[in-house]
Nucleic acid binder design. Structure first.
Lengths: 234, 234
DNA sequence: TCCGGTCTGTGGACGCTGTCTACGACCCGA
DNA sequence: TCGGGTCGTAGACAGCGTCCACAGACCGGA
């Protein structure tokens, strides 16, 4: 009643293609025990490797099994279907984004001026977000571009080492801006959406939108322009 | 060398599923001539119908052929492969977006105050953009979420009735702002990116990002917040 | 120590996909 | 009238996600 024709397609046969990456033994070396021991984890790791290169659509169940060195349907002992595995990979990619944002903030120079530091932190999160999208387009597309439909968004998932997800990291920056008096507290509620939309939009347009292929010079200008608009218009 | 494993997958078999939409005779009624007469156009139209419901991944070549009432590979006489058909659909979806933006601008009340009108026009384009994404998520995802990789971006494609694409419509608004003195001309260069990123980002997050399912009240606030940030931070 | 149950991995099916190819119907100009 | 080019047909093929019957491996109780 919902999906009339199956909204899943693509794939199917293709002409020869070069031989698959390491058609035999992969993941680790060929295991000698019948039971793998840590297959679930290995499947997600293999999915991450595939997603890094080709985005979510590269997470082909049979290819993931192949990369883990197991039979083509072994993953069904750990995930009910392909989407479930993809969600796990997607969450992992989101965590990686959070981790890069945290790293970038941690690298900020210390400042006596707390207000200035708060602004720099906000800018750093935005820069890290866009850098992640450009450096790891496959993961970025996986983190956000998953069919999801009914993806369960469990709390605490997609978080970095601090336990905060990208959205919460942004919220923390805004809270700090309020705490330092840089942002009037009456403008705080719902203020995440502006910076998030702007940065996410730029990243999306750059990664697989009409702006892909932008040269480094033009790109730097675009990032500066967007972040300037955000900080000016907050 | 580029795509190691074919970055095209998904699909494959699925359990029964309900019978396809009108397995026999579809598109128009079953034709009686051997030659279709206008197959290329009909294929694109069928692709648009499928994309409207299920996004780009719903544009299944065999299903498109089926909907047009021809054999499963008839489309190969008009498109070299599935992607080419998808690009045509994608361009059509982009045109539809441009058309809705134009419509929204045309509906603006006339103003003696040209500057005010220019601001309202900018706001209207942004609102139309987001409304389109929410009203036609399938088309929106098709317009922007296509593999593209090497999609040829021909000039003049994806345009509305005025012959301008969404980006050019936005540029026009900014030009008018400069002409009326609302925006200093030295800030004009590259100014499209800010509004575009913010609006596109919000639309993306709402359509298939973490913000999907936002209620109408919260949504209205988000749209207002983002557009406010754009106009304030320009 | 053996024995049965439960995980977990195997391998073969199925129907779906995109694509290729040989073929056949039609249209049109010579 | 005929012959070539255009356009649709039909059957193949490999790869996909998924299901199923089966088998190896582990574990607790007798």
């Amino acid at each position: 009643m919902d999906a009339v024709y199956d909204p899943r397609r693509e794939g199917g046969g293709r002409p020869p293609l070069e031989p698959q990456v390491t058609p035999t033994l992969s993941g680790k070396e060929r295991r000698d025990t019948y039971h793998h021991g840590n297959l679930r984890e290995e499947l997600i790791a293999a999915g991450m490797r595939l997603a890094q290169v080709g985005g979510p659509e590269a997470v082909v169940l049979r290819e993931v099994n192949r990369a883990a060195g197991v039979s083509h349907s072994a993953a069904y002992r750990h995930f009910p279907d392909r989407d479930s595995l993809l969600w796990a990979v997607c969450e992992r990619a989101m965590s990686e984004l959070a981790r890069r944002m945290e790293k970038r903030m941690a690298e900020l120079p210390p400042r006596r001026d707390r207000k200035r530091h708060a602004w720099e932190a906000l800018e750093a999160t935005g820069q890290a977000y866009i850098e992640f999208a450009l450096a790891e387009p496959g993961w970025f597309r996986t983190a956000f571009g998953v069919p999801l439909e009914l993806r369960p968004i469990a709390p605490g998932e997609g978080s970095g080492d601090s336990g905060l997800d990208p959205f919460q990291l942004l919220a923390g920056c805004l809270d700090e801006l309020v705490a330092t008096g840089a942002l009037p507290s009456e403008r705080r509620r719902g203020a995440e959406i502006g910076p998030w939309a702007a940065v996410h939009g730029l990243a999306t347009l750059l990664v697989d939108g009409p702006l892909r292929g932008t040269g480094p010079k033009e790109l730097a200008l675009q990032v500066r322009t967007v972040l300037g608009m955000v900080m000016h218009g907050l």
